[in-house]
Amino acid sequence: MIQTSNLTFQYKKGEQILSFPNITLDKQESLLVLGKSGIGKTTFLHLLAGLLKPTGGKVLISDIDLCSLSHNQLDKFRGQQIGLVFQKKYAIQSLSLLDNLKMRLFLSKKSIKDTRIKLLLEQLDLNDCKNKRVQALSEGQLQRLSIAMAVIHRPQVILADEPTSSLDDENCKNVIELLKQQARETEANLIVITHDHRIKPYFQKSITL
């Protein structure tokens, strides 16, 4: 469950104040946030992930107010309850695919069994390249790895920032379906932020910034 109220953000004093619409998502609900470039989509996502502190308003995830958490609590909360997917499919460069997933689990401090990694590797068709270093992975493998990194620890909220903008139609469809499937399996809220209108049909609920 995720809820925002009267969320505003200002990068520097005197600059324009960004304000964001209130959203309320029930358990397992998904949301598409559409908007042109430069309108503050990523800022909204970072506010939801607790990476930025809002100037005003509140973000509640499972009734926990992110603003009320200390620096360390926020790190911990993020590690356990939030999964982020980025446009560039980054993971830790010096580690292998498998070690990246192990690292993600380790940092979440959640006790999740190793079978979870195995299952996910199979679901995302990453079993063959699990020992490859991130640098050696193909585009598609990186894309799937970044989804795996976002869901391995069974977060409450999956936040995806422009996950499809550089993909062709078919891959775009694949990625969205994988994200939705993983959100369903982990019973998480999925919020996708994009300017890519191709994925509008996959979501029941959408807002425009």
Binding site: D75, R78, I92, L107
Partner: peptide
């Protein structure tokens, strides 16, 4: 590696 390090922070690293 600032990006890697930032990424680790998003994974919950302190």
């Amino acid at each position: 590696r600032s990006f890697d390090l930032a990424l680790l922070r998003t994974y919950g690293a302190s």
